[in-house]
Amino acid sequence: MTIDQLLVYFFGACALLGGVLMLVARHPMRVALALISCMLSLAGIYAMLGVHVVAVFQVLIYVGAVMVFMVYVIMLLDVRDPSFVRRYSRMLLPGVVLGALLAGALGISAIRLGAPAIQPGAGAAPSYLVQPFSVEFLREYWLHFELTSVLLVAAVVAAIAIIRSGRRSDG
């Protein structure tokens, strides 16, 4: 067992721990910090697997943009909210049962998959470097790339519309 495999195990355990902590933490700020640690561990897994582009953008976009925004909103809102104290809703028991069933079914399908093993670090094929990745992205998937710009414009317009309608209902 090499140090690469040990690191993948370590990051996987950290991601799992972060996911479990998200369910049991009481304050949303602690949930956000658990999610950030989970995302950073996943970025570590991607880096150990050789997919450095995804690892870098996981840190930049998810942790750097999305979660910073989320932490900012948590600080903006009132901390004396009753939902900050009572963690779970009435769906606690069915939710846990359904989640366990889903994890079990997916796990059985993963075991029955019987896939060939991939070696961490051996995935550092040249196709995962930035240049071939970008060439492939813009040559094969240029339509999807342009469609994402439409999606982002729609999101911006929708966010502005939501804010404006909220102001109108206020006064």
């Binding site: 909103v73 963690r87 889903l102």
Partner: peptide, 28 residues
């Protein structure tokens, strides 16, 4: 660190997220 392990981790994380959406009270 084979495919099954990473897939299993992915499935467990997905199930944890689903349970969290169903169980928690806070919208954030």
């Amino acid at each position: 660190a084979d495919t099954q392990l990473l897939l299993g981790l992915s499935f467990v994380l997905f199930a944890l997220g689903l349970v969290g959406v169903m169980v928690r009270r806070n919208a954030l």
